[in-house]
C-alpha cells in the first residue's frame, strides 16, 4: 500500500523540531515509532505536508530517576521502558501494560511510550481503508456532521485505546510538553478532552517531551487488567488499572481507572473517595464494579468489535478484578 506524498525531516534536536512545528503547525506531523501513524497514512486518514521524525533526537529518549519522579522521554521505545531497571523496580505495572501491547514484532522495538499515549482514538467506522469508509460516508472525525455509531450525536466517541493510558493515569503521571510558549507540565488526568475529534489538550505546535511518574511514598500494590478478542495483536476492548497504598491495614491511597471505552480514560473518583481511609473489604469489589458499569453506560457507543452491552458489563468485571488484585482481595 502506498503512502501519500510528504516531505521528511529528521532533526537532531528538540529545538529544531519545534521550529518546524512553529512554522507549519498541524501540517507537520510527528513520527515517533510510526506504528500507528503509518497505518493511518495508508488509510488516508492523514496526509501531512511534512513528517517530522523524532528518531534522531536523543534528548527525547532519556529515561531517568530524579529525587521524586521517574521521567520517561516521550521518544523512548516500549522495549527500552519495559527493560529499564528503575521502571521494573518502581512500576512493574507499567511493564505489564507494555507487555500487553500488540505483539513483540509489531511495536515493541519501534513503538514509543509517547506514541502509545497519543495513539489516535479508534472506531470501527474510522480505522478502515479509504475505500471502505467511502461506502459509509463522512463522520465528525472525517469532516462530516454526524456520527455513524450514534446517529444525531454532536461529537465523536472514538475510543482511547493505548494500553499504557489507564496505568499511567492510575500512577498520577504528568506530561511535559514543549511548544510555542516554552515548556509546560500538565497532569495526564487533565489531558483528555472527551471528544474524539480533538481528543487531547495539545496545541498544533506542541510536542510531548516527557512523561513523569511521581515516585510513591510507600510500596504500591497494583493491577492491570485487559480484555481483547485475541491476547496478541488486538487492541483492548476494555482495560483497567488500579494502584493502592495500604498502610497499617488502612487504604491510604487508591486510584481505579477504566479505559478503552470512549475518547477519555475514566478515573472512578467516587470509588476512591468511598474506600480511602478504611480497611479494604470485599464490599470494595461490588462498589468498583457498580461504579464502572454506571460510568461505562454513559460513554460506550456501538463502535468496537464487541457489542456495546458486552463492553459495559466487562468494564464492570475488569474494574472488579483490578480492585480485587490491587487490594489483595481476589
Amino acid at each position: 500500500m502506498r503512502l501519500p506524498p510528504f516531505e521528511y525531516q529528521a532533526p537532531s534536536t528538540l529545538d529544531e523540531a519545534l521550529k518546524i512545528k512553529r512554522g507549519q503547525g498541524a501540517a507537520a506531523q510527528i513520527l515517533a515509532g510510526g506504528t500507528d501513524l503509518i497505518v493511518n497514512f495508508k488509510h488516508r486518514l492523514f496526509s501531512p505536508a511534512t513528517v517530522i521524525s523524532l528518531n534522531n533526537i536523543a534528548e527525547l529518549k532519556r529515561i531517568e530517576v530524579t529525587h521524586d519522579a521517574l521521567v520517561l522521554g516521550a521518544g523512548a521505545s516500549l522495549a527500552e521502558v519495559a527493560s529499564h531497571p528503575a521502571v521494573n523496580e518502581h512500576f512493574p505495572i507499567l511493564v505489564k501494560a507494555i507487555d500487553s501491547i500488540g505483539a513483540l514484532g509489531i511495536q515493541r522495538f519501534r513503538g514509543t511510550i509517547g506514541g502509545n499515549l497519543l495513539l489516535q482514538p479508534r472506531c470501527i467506522f474510522y480505522n478502515q481503508s479509504h475505500y471502505w469508509r467511502m461506502s459509509k460516508g463522512l463522520c465528525h472525525r472525517t469532516g462530516g456532521k454526524d456520527c455513524l455509531a450514534l446517529e444525531g450525536s454532536d461529537s465523536c466517541h472514538s475510543i482511547c485505546s493505548g494500553d499504557t493510558v489507564p496505568t499511567l493515569l492510575a500512577l498520577s503521571a504528568q506530561l511535559a510538553l514543549a511548544g510555542g510558549g516554552g515548556k509546560r507540565v500538565a497532569p495526564l488526568a487533565e489531558f483528555f478532552t472527551g471528544r474524539g475529534e480533538s481528543p487531547w489538550n495539545i496545541m498544533p505546535e506542541e510536542i510531548l517531551t516527557e512523561i513523569r511518574i511521581p515516585l510513591p511514598w510507600a510500596p504500591i500494590s497494583w493491577s492491570y487488567q485487559r480484555l481483547a478478542l485475541r491476547p496478541a495483536v488486538d487492541f483492548p476492548l476494555v482495560n483497567a488499572a488500579a494502584a493502592a497504598i495500604v498502610e497499617k491495614g488502612k487504604l491510604e491511597h487508591f486510584r481505579l481507572v477504566i479505559a478503552a471505552l470512549g475518547p477519555a480514560p475514566m478515573v472512578l473518583r467516587e470509588v476512591e473517595a468511598r474506600l480511602k481511609g478504611a480497611a479494604p473489604t470485599r464490599e470494595a469489589l461490588d462498589l468498583a464494579q457498580d461504579a464502572a458499569v454506571r460510568v461505562a453506560e454513559g460513554v460506550v457507543v456501538a463502535n468496537a468489535s464487541a457489542s456495546k452491552e458486552y463492553r459495559i458489563q466487562m468494564a464492570g468485571a475488569l474494574a472488579r478484578r483490578a480492585t480485587g488484585e490491587a487490594l489483595g482481595l481476589a
Binding site: M1, Y8, A10, G34, I38, V39, S53, G105, I106
Partner: peptide
C-alpha cells in the same frame, strides 16, 4: 524484529 511495512525507509 520490526515491521518493514510500518517503517519509512529513511528511518
Amino acid at each position: 524484529p520490526i515491521r518493514s511495512c510500518l517503517t519509512l525507509a529513511l528511518e
